[in-house]
Design a protein around this nucleic acid. Structure first.
Lengths: 343, 343
DNA sequence: CTGTTAGCGCATTCAG
DNA sequence: CTGAATGCGCTAACAG
C-alpha cells in the first residue's frame, strides 16, 4: 500500500496492539493484559499503557480478540418483529443488562417465519455468539440441530415447553387461554367471540380458550383470524365481522392492540363497554389501560423475562464453557388476569 | 451425560474450512471461493464443496473471515430507546433491507445519553462494522472523532444538520416547530400550551414552535416539560398542570403518546376535543389516529428513513472502500402536518 | 479455474 | 509481574 504517495489524509490505517506497545515501551502482550486483566499488571505499567492507548486512539479489534480467545462477547436475539412490539420491554431489559456486563447484542428479525429463523440462526452462529435468545419454542429441526451443535447457552423466551433446547423462560399460552375461559365463564359469560391475528402464540391462546369453553359446554364460539400484524384497523374489521353474524356478549382478543380496535369500533357503534359488549385483551398495553378503563386483559411481565434471560446467560458465561451440559432450566414467569370491568 | 466417560459427547469442536476441504478433496481456498464467490468456481467442484459442507455441518467463522478480509458484513444501529418507539418503523425497514443483502445488525441503546453513546460507539467500533447508523446529529467530540477515524460510512438519521459527519437522513425539528406554529396561528389559535418530554429532539421542536409564536406576537405560551419517557400518564399529568394555570385553547405535544394522555385527561374532564380544547401531537401513531379522529399531528415517514439509510449504506459498500471520501450527503425526508380537526 | 504462501490482530500458553 | 512464541480460521495476492 502506498505509504505517502498522494498523501491521502490521516487515514491512520488501524492502530494495533503492537503500535500501542511500541509507544508505551512494553511488549504487546502487556498491553493486552493491561486492557483485559488490569489486576495482573503493575499500576505504573498500566498507566503507561493507558496513556499510549489515548495517544494512539487505539480501538481493540474484537474480531481478532474473539478469534484468538473464542469468546465473542456477543449475544444474539431473535424476535418475530420489533414494530408494535410486546417484546419491547423484554428487549430493553435484556440489552440493558447485557450491555452493563460488557456484552453486545446482535438483533435478528424473523417475521414469524420458521425458515427465516433458520437462515438467521445459521448466519448468526457464524459470528460465534457466546449465547443466543430466541422468542418462542417452535423451531425447525435444522435450527435446533445447529443450536445444539453450537454448544452455547440458548434461551427460549415468551413461551414454555417440556423440552427446551436448553433454558426456557416464559409462560404457557395454553394456560392463558384456559384460565381466561374459566375466569369469564365463572363471571357468567356464555356467548363468546374470539379475535386473533395469525401469529402462532396468539392462535394457541385463542384455540386453548375455545377448547376450554367447549369442555364447559360452550360450543358456539365465533372465531375470526386476521392477517398479522395486529393493528387497530384489524381489530375494527374483525369486530365488524363478528358483530354482523350473531353479536357475542364478549370479545376475547389475541392482543391489546386488537382489543383497542374492538373498543374503537364499539365506540363508533355507540356500544357501551362492558355493558353492551365486554372486551378482553392480552399484553396489558399501558396505553390501552389508561384510555379504556373498562378493558380487561392478561398481564405478562416482559421486563422480567428479559432480566431472567440476561441473568441466565451471564451466569453461564461466568461458569465458563461447561461443555455440552444443557441444564434444561425452565422458568415459569406466569401471567395475571386483570379484570377491569366495574361489575 | 458423558457417554464414553472422558470422551465428552460429540462436541464436534468446530468444523473448519480445512475439514471441509479435506472431505471435498480440494484446497481450503477453493472451499472459501465456492462459498463466497461461486462464479469463480467450476460447477462440479462447487457441488463437491457444497456436499462436503452439508456432510460436515460446517458453519463459516465470520470472525476469522472478517479479520482476514477486513469486511465484517455488520452494520451497527444506535438508538435512544426501542420501547415506545417511533423508531420502530425505521429499524424494521433498515434491518429488513440489510438482512436481505447479507448484512447483520448490531443494536445499541443509548438511552438519550451522549456519554452512553460514546461508550457504545467505542465498543461497537471494536467489532469493525462496515457501517453505522446513529439516531440524531448531536454527539460528543470524542464520538465524532472516533467515527471519522473509523473511516466507514456513517448515517445520521431522524434529524438534519448542516455539518453531517458523513450522510444525514431526516428532517428539521426546528422546521417542524416553526411550521406547526404558523399553521395553527393561521387557523386562528392564539392561546397555546406546550407539553414535551425531556428528549432533545422533542424539546427542539417545542422551543422552535414557541420561538415562532413569539415572532408572531404570541408570548404567553405555557411550557411544561415531563421527564422521559413519554407515557400516557405523563401526558395526563402535564395536562393537569397546564389546565390548572390558565387553560390554553390548544395543547401542542412533543409526541403522540403524550397527546393521547392529553386526550384521555380531557375526556375525563368532559372537555370536548377540538371544541373546548384542541390537541396537536407528533409522530402519527396509528393507534392515536384511529381512536381519536380529532387528534391533529405531524406525520414523519420512519420507514422511508430506514430504507434510505439502508440504501445509502449498501451503495457505499458496493463502491468499495473509497478511502476517507465523505460525500456529506443530506437527505430531507420532510414531514407533513395532518390536520384532523373537523373545522 | 485452482492451489500456495502469508498474514489479519489478538490471546493462550508457557518461560523468565 | 512481564515477555516470546504460536496459532485461532480465514482470505488476498499471487502462481500455476
Amino acid at each position: 500500500m502506498a505509504k505517502k504517495d498522494e498523501g491521502i489524509q490521516a487515514t491512520a490505517e488501524s492502530v494495533t496492539l503492537i503500535d500501542v506497545a511500541r509507544v508505551a515501551g512494553v511488549a504487546p502482550m502487556t498491553v493486552s493484559r493491561a486492557l483485559n486483566r488490569p489486576e495482573l499488571v503493575r499500576s505504573d505499567t498500566q498507566k503507561k499503557v493507558l496513556d499510549a492507548v489515548r495517544a494512539t486512539g487505539y480501538v481493540p479489534n474484537l474480531l481478532a480478540g474473539g478469534l484468538a480467545s473464542s469468546k465473542s462477547r456477543l449475544v444474539a436475539i431473535l424476535l418475530p418483529t420489533i414494530a408494535n412490539s410486546i417484546f419491547a420491554d423484554t428487549v430493553q431489559a435484556l440489552v440493558d443488562r447485557l450491555t452493563a456486563s460488557g456484552y453486545q447484542t446482535l438483533l435478528g428479525v424473523t417475521a414469524y417465519s420458521i425458515s427465516r429463523e433458520e437462515a438467521l440462526v445459521e448466519a448468526i452462529l457464524g459470528r460465534r455468539p457466546d449465547g443466543i435468545v430466541l422468542a418462542g419454542t417452535s423451531h425447525s429441526k435444522a435450527t435446533v440441530a445447529r443450536l445444539v451443535k453450537a454448544n452455547i447457552p440458548v434461551v427460549e423466551i415468551w413461551d414454555l415447553t417440556s423440552k427446551p433446547i436448553d433454558t426456557v423462560i416464559g409462560f404457557s399460552h395454553e394456560q392463558v387461554g384456559k384460565e381466561v375461559a374459566q375466569h369469564l365463564v365463572a363471571k357468567g359469560y356464555r356467548d363468546f367471540g374470539v379475535l386473533s391475528v395469525d401469529d402462532p402464540r396468539g392462535l394457541r391462546r385463542c384455540k386453548s380458550l375455545i377448547a376450554q369453553l367447549a369442555t364447559q359446554g360452550i360450543r358456539n364460539t365465533a372465531f375470526e383470524i386476521m392477517p398479522a400484524p395486529a393493528t387497530l384497523q384489524a381489530g375494527r374489521e374483525g369486530t365488524a365481522k363478528l358483530l354482523q353474524a350473531r353479536p357475542p356478549r364478549i370479545i376475547v382478543c389475541s392482543s391489546d392492540t386488537l382489543a383497542q380496535g374492538v373498543l374503537a369500533e364499539a365506540a363508533s357503534r355507540k356500544l357501551n363497554v362492558p355493558d353492551d359488549i365486554a372486551v378482553m385483551g392480552f399484553g396489558d398495553l399501558s396505553t390501552a389501560a389508561h384510555v379504556y378503563p373498562a378493558l380487561s386483559t392478561v398481564r405478562v411481565d416482559g421486563a422480567t423475562i428479559g432480566m431472567e434471560a440476561a441473568d441466565t446467560l451471564l451466569a453461564r458465561f461466568l461458569q465458563g464453557r461447561t461443555g455440552a451440559v444443557s441444564s434444561r432450566v425452565k422458568i415459569d414467569t406466569g401471567f395475571a388476569i386483570i379484570d377491569r370491568e366495574s361489575t
